[in-house]
């Protein structure tokens, strides 16, 4: 049943739990706000909704210090390389929330100039529908992401949201 040293196994598991607990309660967001969803994202940070209750209030405008990339707003083809660069600059482990219809799938902007979802350039962990989503919906996404992080197995740095192939009509 056990191969290897039992004590080592117990120690690693517990350490992993602590690391996951620390990670999920200090999701520092990097707000990548390109349009109206960014206004609602500001509301999420304010006293009324207060995302600091979930340890995610320290909005970092430097990707080097952020854990959570919040893509709020449409991503044009011209903006896509910048988004990818910011994602690449973020240290592991990192997560991405696509906030709103535009960041999730292009929303109403089915145009040659607009990416049909931020997941064309970065792997998205949580999609938040809405135009824009209510602040509660964003907090809901953060809570669901925290649950996902605490369920992540072993020393997996981030539960891999692979670059999902775009579905027809999605």
């Amino acid at each position: 049943m056990f191969d290897g040293n039992l004590e080592d196994m117990i120690m690693t598991t517990r350490l992993g739990e602590v690391v996951k607990w620390a990670r999920k309660n200090s999701l520092w967001p990097m707000p990548f706000g390109t349009s109206c969803c960014a206004i609602e994202l500001m509301s999420v940070l304010t006293t009324k909704y207060d995302i600091s209750r979930f340890g995610a209030e320290v909005a970092r405008f430097s990707p080097r210090q952020a854990d959570l990339l919040m893509v709020a707003g449409w991503i044009t083809r011209k903006m896509a390389p910048a988004l990818r660069k910011i994602y690449d600059q973020m240290p592991e482990p990192k997560w991405v929330i696509a906030m709103g219809a535009c960041a999730s799938c292009g929303g109403p902007h089915n145009s040659y100039a607009v990416l049909q979802g931020a997941d064309e350039v970065v792997p998205v962990d949580m999609y938040v529908p809405g135009c824009p989503p209510r602040p509660e919906a964003v907090i809901d996404a953060v809570i669901k992401l925290q649950e996902r992080i605490s369920r992540a197995s072993g020393d997996e740095t981030r539960q891999g949201a692979a670059l999902a192939p775009r579905q027809e009509g999605a």
């Binding site: 799938c105 999609y127 938040v128 529908p129 989503p133 209510r134 919906a137 809901d140 999605a170």
Partner: peptide, 13 residues
């Protein structure tokens, strides 16, 4: 209903 956040596109269709 508005709390619909999901980790994949398929879950939101």
């Amino acid at each position: 209903k508005f709390e619909l956040a999901a980790p994949s596109r398929a879950e939101l269709v």
